[in-house]
Design a binder for these strands. Structure first.
Lengths: 233, 233
DNA sequence: CTATGATGTGACCGAGCGGTCATATGACTG
DNA sequence: CAGTCATATGACCGCTCGGTCACATCATAG
């Protein structure tokens, strides 16, 4: 955790430092992210940085937790209209709010993506529970879908979690790349992306998931015998 | 491209250098991948390295092209039993062969993953065509599926390509992480993964894709009016 | 043998890194 | 005023980096 000194800082200064840190860790590996760059861009002395954080790793862990925390806060601040809605309507909401978050804090999104999917500079020490809690969230959603009757109970739950989590996680970055949106512009709150109409994409993805997950009226296709869903690993 | 000197090397030595280079670029960013580490592990002098490659970037580009080329070769060496088979059977084959490749050369897979999905140290200079050709491959597959009648022609093609490519790309890494397979062991040809029975996972993924993509006998659900597939962006 | 040209080598260079520390600054206390 | 304490600073340290270069090695040709 950052030292108390950091939290005693005026908010502007603290935010500026965090912004520069996020930018650095969003565009570089843990190894190549440079404290020297961060302090230079934030306009503080190297020594000051080490009054705020124990070391590089301290900052890194803080940023990753921050990313998770901010996303949680964002979701909580934009709750679905009806908490008991149909699973796929709920997913449509989740996809939309998740995208809005990713478009407004794209660099924070990259920090999390790197931490979860590309590098683990300190083993699974911290990340593990962040990733796991996201997966558990999807799992409970899908479980709810099964109970609602909107998800086929024959579906393999692990596979369903894999599919939904990967597609949802990739969705934002895919859209950013496809539309060639600039992370800088997005971060500055550029209104550019508001011109985007994503309802079609959203609809295509959700309706694909619905077709793939919902109970299937026809028999389980051509392999009717091995439909067990968890053949003890 | 590497200098002629590199290709004049005895095969063992060349392969050893490449193996160490792949290992380094698989576990590090472009920036943090270290030539010093590579030459140390390969047992050659720093000066020798620069007889073989122009510079770090030369090696990097070569490795990325190599990864793409090796995967193409692997697919070509394990062709599907019947080239005219049903789309989803074809996908089952592709998933299986792709997984086998990823399990036998996992580090090469990481080099490609980093290059395509996490970093572009030199703009889109080289990678673009590698990624694009993979996407075009999936697109033509799906197009074929439409013509076969196994894919719903109403499906949005871009979304379908997104879904299939992301899931296929994530599948191998997901399995490696889930089973906690060691990249070292896999690279050494450890037989460990042969004990794995992946047919169930495979079947779950493919049958999910089939449900999601196949023509839907029922009406287009509850939003029958806006079924256009590309409302000019 | 010598001469030549390709290949191998590691000390060396300037730069940037994470991190430290003696010192400076400034606000508050008495 | 002096004394104290939290904070700010940048020169500095040891290290590693990508890359270079003068030189060593060696096979072949004459």
């Amino acid at each position: 955790m950052p030292k108390p000194t950091f939290f005693n800082l005026p908010e502007d200064k603290r935010d500026l430092i965090l912004e520069m840190a996020i930018e650095e860790f969003a565009s570089n590996d843990y190894e190549s992210a440079s404290i020297s760059q961060i302090v230079a861009r934030a306009g503080i002395a190297k020594g000051s940085f080490y009054q705020y954080f124990e070391d590089k790793r301290d900052l890194y862990f803080y940023l990753v937790e921050l990313a998770a925390e901010e996303k949680r806060r964002f979701l909580a601040a934009h709750p679905p209209p009806d908490p008991k809605m149909n699973l796929f309507d709920y997913m449509r909401w989740l996809l939309r709010v998740g995208l809005t978050f990713e478009l407004s804090r794209p660099k924070l999104g990259w920090v999390a993506f790197r931490a979860i999917h590309v590098e683990r500079p300190f083993g699974d020490e911290v990340l593990d529970h962040v990733q796991r809690s996201a997966l558990d969230y999807y799992r409970s959603l899908l479980q709810m879908g099964v109970e609602q009757g909107s998800v086929d109970p024959e579906i393999d739950m692990d596979m369903a979690v894999f599919i939904v989590s990967r597609l949802f996680a990739a969705y934002g970055r895919h859209l950013i790349e496809r539309e060639q949106l600039s992370l800088e512009d997005l971060d500055k709150g550029s209104p550019a992306y508001r011109d985007l109409d994503v309802t079609d994409m959203e609809e295509h993805l959700i309706s694909f998931l619905e077709r793939g997950l919902r109970p299937c009226p026809r028999a389980e296709k051509d392999r009717p015998d091995d439909a067990d869903q968890e053949p003890a690993p």
